[in-house]
Amino acid sequence: MFRQLKLDIRLIKEIDKGILISLILLILYGTLNIYLCTKGEYGLAFAEKQFSWFMISMVALYFFIAVDYGIIYNYVPIFYWGIVILLILTKVPGIGIVVNGARGWINLGIGNMQPSEFAKLGIIFMIAKTLEEMDGKINEVKNFFILAFYAIVPVIFIVTQPDMGMSMVCFFIVLGIFFTMGLDMKIIGGGLMSLVLAIVIVWNSGLIEPYQKARFTGFLNPAADDAKTGYHLTQSLIGIGSGGILGSRPSLMLDGNTGYASQNVPEVQTDFIFAAIAEQWGLLGAILLLVLYGFLIYRMISIARTSKDIFGSVICTGIVSYFLFAIIQNIGMTIGLVPITGITLPLISYGGSSLLTTVISIGFVINIGMRRKKINF
């Protein structure tokens, strides 16, 4: 076992240094901004927790780089069904707990875990393994329904939490994979129509509380109720606007000021961290963030295109799909272009489960890239 965790120098040379560097820079940039927007009330507390998860994530990253992803291939069903069981456990009183209106967390005693964060990886891996076994023949009716089954099972439990944000993430991950693998466009169109129908059904099912609906639709006219449903967006826009081109950098001052967004946007370190970044560092800071993201995604797409097998290519595709949707959705909701959901900004927002699963997913991409070539040991 320990011999498998030792990286040979010839494999180390194949590591995509660009992905590794951009990954670390993004996490450090996120941790810095988490500190700057929470230091006024909490000091180093949030930044220290995030940095601790950064260290844990780096250990996990090494593990998932060192072990050949071909070995992990054999354990995908165990991982997938284990995640499904954890999602079911969130419904059990005393084990599952409610956070921000959704029963989607498990109390571990020393902290909370969000199984839905791992579910998106479970879906990616299970679909990738299944497509490998099907030799990529996605348009055969039987194959399509098997793939759809694996995609739908975890999402059913996520929707009933209810967590519409993560449900949307899973849907667009699957959509990205299916589109890239050449699924018939008529089926994709039907899938999009099914999504709309599912949203309508869930919307009217009673699973979503009125205040959650109001928050979701508040982006259409935030000024109509800027004290309640439009509050987050209104305050976010004020904070972003005050940053200008170069940023106001209020948190760098010694007068104790942490900035408008930090003081007025609830839980700014999670879903609305982009508002704090844009206020702190301005348009240039936001562009820097997007450049780092762009380079990371570009390198992951390159690995997806050159992977030696379908399994590796689909994993990379699913992870790229996640990044693209999460970034567009999160930044879009902070500037009022899309509805507000609980989707975090990958590698930037505060949250241990989110950071760990995202780093693990990138570790798989690096792993796949390292083993594109046949290396004789």
Rank of each mutant, 00 (worst) to 15 (best):
Q4C: 01
G40I: 00
V314I: 10
L11A: 01
A261I: 06
C37Y: 02
L233R: 06
G318A: 05
M193N: 03
M113Y: 12
I72D: 00
N143F: 10
G122T: 11
I83S: 03
G312D: 07
N376Q: 08
V338Q: 13
L347H: 01
K186R: 08
F144A: 06
A276H: 03
A47K: 07
Y42D: 14
T306N: 13
A275Y: 02
Y298I: 04
V141L: 11
I273W: 05
F178D: 01
P250N: 13
L20N: 06
D225W: 12
D16K: 07
G111D: 06
F63Y: 13
S349K: 04
M185W: 08
I97P: 00
M253W: 03
F2D: 12
Y150W: 10
I156P: 01
L147S: 06
I245V: 13
G241I: 13
I187T: 10
S22P: 00
I277V: 14
G256Q: 12
G165I: 11
R305H: 11
I146N: 04
S52H: 03
G176E: 11
G342R: 09
L233C: 07
S302Q: 05
T180W: 11
A224C: 02
E140G: 10
W281N: 13
L23D: 04
F79H: 07
F172N: 05
F118A: 15
F325G: 08
R299W: 02
L61V: 01
I331M: 15
G332Q: 12
L28Y: 04
F311G: 02
M113S: 10
K120M: 12
G30S: 12
S57E: 06
A275S: 13
I88S: 07
L246V: 10
D135M: 07
T344V: 12
A227D: 07
D255T: 08
L28F: 12
I366D: 03
I106D: 10
L183F: 05
T344M: 14
N33P: 05
